[in-house]
C-alpha cells in the first residue's frame, strides 16, 4: 500500500467506501462483515461520548466475532419496522500513514424511509478509520462512526 501513489489510493478508497455504503443500503450484512479485518474494532458512538473521551459505544464490536454477531442478531432476532436506508459518504480523506496502516476520515449521512412517512435524515456524522491491506484488499482495522445527532431518531437498527 505504501508503494501506491496518492491518486491511485484515493480511488481505491473511494470504491471501498462506496461499496461499503452499497452493502448497507441493500442490507447485505454478511457482505458488510467482509469489509473488516480479523482484529477489527467497530464502534458507533455519540459525539457527546466521543468528545469526552469516554469508552461506551452505542454499537460496540471488539473483534470480527462481535461484528458477525451484530449482523446475525439484526437479521435473525430483531423485531423492527421495515425501512429503506440510503448511505451517502463524502470523499474519504487520508489523514496519515503509519507503516501498513492508513488513517482516513469521511463524512456520512443516512436517510431513512419508513412505510407511511416522509423520508427523513436518520443520522449524520463522520467516520474515523484505520485501514490495512489484507490479501490485496483494503479492510477496516478500526472504524469509529461518530454521530452528530444528540439523540438517535427512535432506533438504530442497521449498522452505520
Amino acid at each position: 500500500m505504501k508503494d501506491k501513489n496518492d491518486a491511485a489510493l484515493r480511488q481505491d478508497l473511494r470504491d471501498f467506501y462506496e461499496d461499503y455504503a452499497g452493502a448497507l443500503d441493500d442490507v447485505r450484512l454478511e457482505d458488510w462483515v467482509g469489509f473488516f479485518a480479523d482484529d477489527a474494532v467497530y464502534k458507533v458512538i455519540s459525539r457527546e461520548t466521543h468528545s469526552q473521551g469516554l469508552s461506551h459505544a452505542t454499537i460496540y464490536c471488539d473483534g470480527l466475532a462481535m461484528i458477525r454477531d451484530r449482523a446475525a442478531a439484526v437479521q435473525e432476532t430483531a423485531v423492527f419496522e421495515p425501512r429503506v436506508l440510503r448511505h451517502f459518504v463524502g470523499g474519504p480523506r487520508i489523514i496519515s500513514r503509519d507503516g501498513d496502516e492508513i488513517a482516513v476520515t469521511a463524512n456520512f449521512l443516512i436517510t431513512e424511509a419508513l412505510f407511511d412517512a416522509e423520508p427523513q435524515i436518520l443520522m449524520m456524522g463522520r467516520y474515523l478509520d484505520k485501514l490495512v491491506e489484507r490479501g490485496g484488499d483494503l479492510k477496516f482495522r478500526e472504524r469509529l462512526a461518530v454521530y452528530d445527532n444528540h439523540r438517535v431518531r427512535t432506533t438504530l437498527v442497521i449498522p452505520v
Partner: peptide, 22 residues
C-alpha cells in the same frame, strides 16, 4: 462495554421497545 450491546438505541433487546412504542 460488550454487554452494552444488549441495551440502548441499537440494543439487541432495547431497540425493539422503541420500535414498538413508536
Amino acid at each position: 462495554l460488550k454487554q452494552g450491546n444488549l441495551v440502548g438505541p441499537a440494543g439487541y433487546v432495547s431497540l425493539e421497545d422503541s420500535e414498538v412504542l413508536a
